[in-house]
């Protein structure tokens, strides 16, 4: 069982890291919320709706960040066959999906007062929507296989195809929106952001980042426990029942 040596060491490491990241997440989130909702000024153009940016932009950023983690995990699954890599990819995907969904909904809630419509086929929203579909496909692959190692490699292949596609999709969607839409009414994110908006944005970004690491570690631990549980059940029940029950997360 030397295969387990690595995960066990990882869990010990995770148990050392988690007591740091969890309070950091909570603390940064509290500070970030205070800065975003109370201590920062309203925008002269957008009024208070600019406060939505402080969660919308970090969500969109995390959506992409999680996909990069998923793709990197896929790469090391395929190339190095690292036993923790597929676990990491599977653990990161639902977090990424959640952030992608949040980016979409907060974008929509921001769009309504600003553009007067719940949904605008703006380049950023559209790209995030496609990213949402990519996550769904990745998770569907994980769900569709009975054999874990096969699922891991199939999902890894999809993640890599997806990550090569992300710039292509982004480019094509930008191309498409410049064709179909007059230039955006405003550009809220981007380098022209007002200095007073930077602290809440950066604190929220950091908070989301630490949130990711915390939940990511929890999910990896959960995955590893599921694998261990399966192995134990298989060892315990294999002589009696032909098909050990899979632990479906």
């Amino acid at each position: 069982m030397h295969w387990f040596a690595n995960p066990a060491r990882f869990i010990r490491l995770a148990d050392k890291i988690l007591p740091l990241t969890l309070p950091l997440t909570v603390g940064l989130l509290a500070v970030g919320l205070y800065l975003a909702l109370v201590a920062s000024p309203a925008d002269y153009q957008q009024g208070d709706t600019v406060r939505i940016m402080y969660i919308h932009v970090p969500s969109a950023y995390m959506a992409l960040f999680c996909y990069m983690i998923v793709a990197a995990a896929g790469f090391s699954t395929l190339v190095w066959r690292h036993p923790l890599a597929d676990v990491a990819g599977k653990a990161a995907a639902p977090i990424g999906l959640a952030f992608t969904g949040l980016a979409l909904v907060t974008g929509s809630l921001w769009g309504k007062p600003m553009w007067g419509a719940w949904w605008v086929w703006d380049a950023r929203l559209t790209s995030v929507l496609v990213l949402f579909f990519l996550y769904l496909g990745y998770m569907a692959i994980w769900g569709a296989f009975e054999d874990r190692s096969k699922a891991a490699r199939a999902a890894a292949i999809l993640a890599l195809v997806g990550v090569i596609n992300i710039p292509i999709i982004k480019f094509s969607v930008d191309w498409w929106t410049t064709l179909h839409q007059p230039a955006s009414l405003f550009r809220a994110d981007g380098p022209s952001i007002d200095p007073s908006m930077r602290p809440p944005l950066y604190v929220m970004l950091a908070a989301f980042q630490f949130y990711f690491f915390t939940v990511f570690l929890w999910r990896i631990k959960g995955e590893l426990a599921a694998i261990r549980l399966n192995a134990l059940r298989y060892a315990g029940e294999a002589p009696r029942s032909a098909s050990p029950k899979e632990e479906q997360p």
Partner: peptide, 21 residues
């Protein structure tokens, strides 16, 4: 005047993140 949108955003984000966590 934008309270509904802003609080909906923040509420939703907190609920989803808390739930997932």
């Amino acid at each position: 005047g934008y309270g509904a949108y802003i609080w909906a955003c923040y509420g939703l984000v907190l609920i989803v993140l808390l739930g997932l966590g």
